[in-house]
């Protein structure tokens, strides 16, 4: 818990993944933030996901 408190006492530097509006809110508070351009894989059905994981060696 102490460590978490220490973190929030130091200057926040944020890497945001996902919704870009989170980045905008932090930016408006003058917090250093960068956005990672990431989105979930395009496959949701099991068959295609299994196939993709196989081809990606996972």
């Amino acid at each position: 818990m102490n460590k978490i408190n220490e973190l929030f006492k130091s200057e926040l530097q944020v890497i945001n993944i996902g919704l870009e509006s989170f980045k905008e809110s932090l930016k408006n508070e003058n917090i250093r933030v960068i956005q990672v351009d990431w989105r979930p894989p395009a496959v949701t059905d099991d068959r295609a996901l299994d196939a993709l994981n196989k081809l990606l060696g996972r």
Binding site: R39, P40, P41, A42, A48, L52, L55, L56
Partner: peptide
């Protein structure tokens, strides 16, 4: 593979 993994068309 990358098209589906990255979801970039």
């Amino acid at each position: 593979r990358k098209v589906l993994e990255k979801n970039v068309l």
